[in-house]
Design a protein around this nucleic acid. Sequence first.
DNA 1: TTGTAGGCGTTATCAC
DNA 2: GTGATAACGCCTACAA
Lengths: 339, 339
Amino acid sequence: MNPTIRDVAKLANVSISTVSRVFNNPESVNREMRERVLQVIEELGYAPNPFASGLRDNRSMAIVAMIPDLRNPYYAEMLSGIEEVALAHRYNVIICNQIQDPDRYLEYVKYFVKKKVDGLIFASTEVTDFYHDSFQTLNMPVVLASTEGSSWNLPSVRVNDVQASYDATTFLIQNGHRHIGFISGPAHAMITGQQRYEGFRAAMSDHQVPLSDQNVVYGELSFDAGYEAMKRLYAKFPQLTAVYAASDAMAIGAMKFLDQQGLEVPRHVSVMGFDNLDLARMVTPGLTTVAQHITDIGKTAGDLLFHLIDNRDADVQSVTINHEIIVRGSVRNRRLMED
Amino acid sequence: MNPTIRDVAKLANVSISTVSRVFNNPESVNREMRERVLQVIEELGYAPNPFASGLRDNRSMAIVAMIPDLRNPYYAEMLSGIEEVALAHRYNVIICNQIQDPDRYLEYVKYFVKKKVDGLIFASTEVTDFYHDSFQTLNMPVVLASTEGSSWNLPSVRVNDVQASYDATTFLIQNGHRHIGFISGPAHAMITGQQRYEGFRAAMSDHQVPLSDQNVVYGELSFDAGYEAMKRLYAKFPQLTAVYAASDAMAIGAMKFLDQQGLEVPRHVSVMGFDNLDLARMVTPGLTTVAQHITDIGKTAGDLLFHLIDNRDADVQSVTINHEIIVRGSVRNRRLMED
DNA sequence: TTGTAGGCGTTATCAC
DNA sequence: GTGATAACGCCTACAA
């Protein structure tokens, strides 16, 4: 059995209140006594029982990170940012994975999150009524990461996807491409479908590049879906000289397909991604992409959450994280073309 | 404020013990009463306060997963396996990241793990005295994943690295390679350095393939380290026709270097990895590698841990997870060579 | 089968 | 500045 506050008190010849004060308000206790107590604490290896503190204060010193898929490096990286700031606050991070499965999500909420946790980071998943209702009943601070909840006034941390997508498209255009295919996220997905499409569309339009249904194809954000999407895109738009995909995984799936068709990247087709996963620099050629600074998104979401935890009624503003074009080898400048 | 057991009791016109029993031993309570209580529980949305239960029973319903690096897909995948079985047991998983930093590790132990958690999975990190001592003071079940602790009789879950490495090397030899470079993990690393090297050595020896210092180079397991290691290896062993690396990340780093030298994989040099990360199928050509079934390692480690949690004195045996050669495009069969 | 009561370890309020 | 004590909510002997 671990030592309790009482053991410390007895051995130090003080009351338990004094021991407690040494932890929670050291200034208020006589120097000499304090040192004696501290010594005994050290000696016994005493640490307050977190259940007891939690029971009294209703704080768990834990937050929960809800993400769609741990095996996706995007979320792993975000999680690592969240974990980083949590550690600094001496908080634990509890993982909830595959939250896009409603049953699984409810399971988490029912057994884990209820009252046991001081706050919640909810990542990359559209905040439907379903999720929003559960936030209400949970009654704890919530911060969104890489998704938005403006309709419910929930603070969020994310890049400006419209602008980022606009910039990516513009980069391709400035490199002399005019036949640009877009592999979008699912049509119904607010961010990876609609907003990134919107940025693409706006850039094409602003630069007077023709755009029709022919240019666009939709799919899930995965490698496999990217491969399939590229197949469809190439079938209906074979004259494309560049492809821009709504995620790096998709872009790399597209590269795989192109390679299998004997089309070289970037000699025959240029490819641009979105996210800047570690992966992007590992493939050959390196993938030119829009960096999201994912770790920062996680860290910032953590910062906001802890601010809300310390200060329940704070009016926390959403934060936009800067994006950045990372140039590697997968896009060719057609303005410098020789053959 | 959330409803307590007392609220339920009052509304259902029973004593709190009855309510408690409905949760913990439903059979022992009169059907009619039970249904009445259940209804009230539903109505109020009552759930037992985990702090109170924890305080009484000294169980947190949480385990901790200690890993070296969340951003490494290897650990993310393992974690996802752990999380999967934890959910099935209605347990939370708390992350401890970057445990190879001793200060950080101690921080975790000091503030988080002590008494707050029912068990521990410790991954891919050599169990030095330092870590082992802390396990002792923690006094909770520990299971090792992808590392070994035979010297302390700790149960572990891992592949047979010597055999797996032997098989990988044999695969290359059977494909007609006799000039095979090996990019090893750090020389001091028990598994990725010593055991995987040992498998390599044994296979070379058994098949009478010459082996000297020239064939081997050491490095960390990362992409960047793989790139650098390949550079060193190629400098001292330019006649190699195949490279076998102790991790997929290293192998892909090596591929990057080879590409930059104008050496084609697998036409000029074959490459073989170890792990079978998702990554391995995404690169071009696909990486031929030894699959570790990482998710299974995580799941099995979880299973063992829960067995120990339910049954403190069980004598749990270590488990070896099967490995498997995954053939993709990065190894060329020289026996079928035309040019 | 059901209810009563004590205790888990901590913190904060209140006397002294 | 220090000490006694109630309260947090649950579970389980034990008594009825």
